[in-house]
Simulated assay, not measured.
Amino acid sequence: MQDSNFSPPIDAEALAKLQAWQGRSETLADDITAAPVRALSATLDRDDAPPAPGTRLPALWHWLYFLPHHRQSEIGEDGHARRGGFLPPVPLPRRMWAGGRLNWETGNPLQVGDKVERTSTIASVTHKTGRTGELVFVLVRHEVRNERGLALTEEHDIVYRAAAAPGEKAPPPTPAPQDAVFSREIVPDDVLLFRYSALTFNGHRIHYDRRYVTEVEGYPGLIVHGPLIATLLVDLLRRNVPGAQLARFEFRAVRPTFDIAPFRVLGKPAEGSSDDKTFSLWGEDADGWLTMQATAVLA
């Protein structure tokens, strides 16, 4: 009997079919309402003033909007929508948010009360074979507009991986830098992961279903959302640099973070920067390994 996670090799013909998705676009409309802002503030353990119309949306909190609303009958085994809609039907079972690059129009911030529109385009589909098997990278470009015009552009990297092979070893880890100027310890308990999944309407089972993530996908514990770690990095900057507003942010997931131990988010002014607006930020697991790298540039 064939393993449900088995996927045939991606040959030139299969890759061409996936690359037929390049150039596809979709546009979604939403409203920047106050309730998700209050909820994420509580989830991040912040003591923010209640949001009101005109309150500026913190950087990365736009991920609370334009959420997927697939019907329950459209959900696949992993908790995501079945493949083949807007995103190409990549036949690899493990799917992760690998990183991204964001640019804000600093003269036009997103605000509570805005009516917004996001246009998303499949920019590229690429295939590689790595040490642990096949990889497919999908790059999605987003443009977010409010009534005043363009507010944000974002490039979103999605990686699809083959199922874990028996006895497969993780790639060699990278030690995290040891010269942080500020840091914060995070306890990734089930409630934190549940609340963030709920806020982003993220049904991906790797974040809340311990049996699925350990027995099917082969990980040692629940996986902390990459966007949550990125949000915590920016939140760390806000806690340590009063009034910080971002102009640019880029991040890359280096290693999964699991709920089996606390982790840290850390940062410092970037080395070699000619101004005081560029910061290096990173995540570190309980063993001192680098989990995420990021650079933030203030407006």
Rank of each mutant, 00 (worst) to 15 (best):
P172Y: 05
T132S: 04
G113D: 14
L192D: 06
L110S: 06
A176R: 05
A180D: 09
A176L: 02
L139S: 12
V125Y: 08
V112F: 02
Y160I: 12
R148G: 01
P166T: 11
R148N: 15
D190S: 14
L110W: 00
G113P: 07
E185M: 07
R145T: 13
T119W: 10
L152C: 11
T126D: 15
E117M: 13
R161H: 02
N146M: 10
K128V: 08
T132K: 12
V187Y: 12
P171Y: 10
V136I: 00
E155N: 11
G149M: 00
G130N: 08
K115T: 15
V140I: 07
L135W: 00
P177I: 12
G149Y: 11
A176C: 10
T119E: 02
A151D: 05
K128A: 06
T129G: 08
H156I: 12
L150R: 03
L193F: 00
K115M: 03
T119D: 09
P188W: 05
P188R: 10
D190I: 13
T126S: 15
F182M: 08
G133S: 01
L152H: 04
E117K: 07
E147T: 06
A151G: 12
H127E: 12
I158M: 14
V159W: 12
P171H: 01
A165V: 13
P175R: 10
R184Y: 09
G167W: 10
T153H: 13
L193N: 09
V112D: 08
L192P: 09
V191S: 01
T174F: 04
I186W: 06
A176P: 02
V159E: 13
A180V: 00
R118S: 14
A165Q: 15
A123D: 11
G167D: 15
L192C: 01
E117F: 00
D190A: 15
F137E: 02
V136A: 07
A165S: 12
D114N: 13
T121L: 00
E117S: 04
I186D: 04
P173K: 06
P109F: 03
D190Y: 14
S120D: 00
R141Q: 15
S120Y: 07
V191Y: 02
T174L: 05
T129I: 07
P171W: 03
R141M: 13
D179L: 00
P171G: 09
K115R: 14
P173G: 10
V112T: 03
A162P: 07
E143L: 09
F182D: 10
G113R: 04
V138W: 06
E147F: 14
D189N: 10
P172A: 13
A164W: 09
D189K: 05
A164I: 00
G113L: 08
G133C: 06
I186C: 08
D114S: 08
H142C: 02
V136D: 07
P175D: 10
R131F: 12
A162K: 02
S124T: 15
R148S: 12
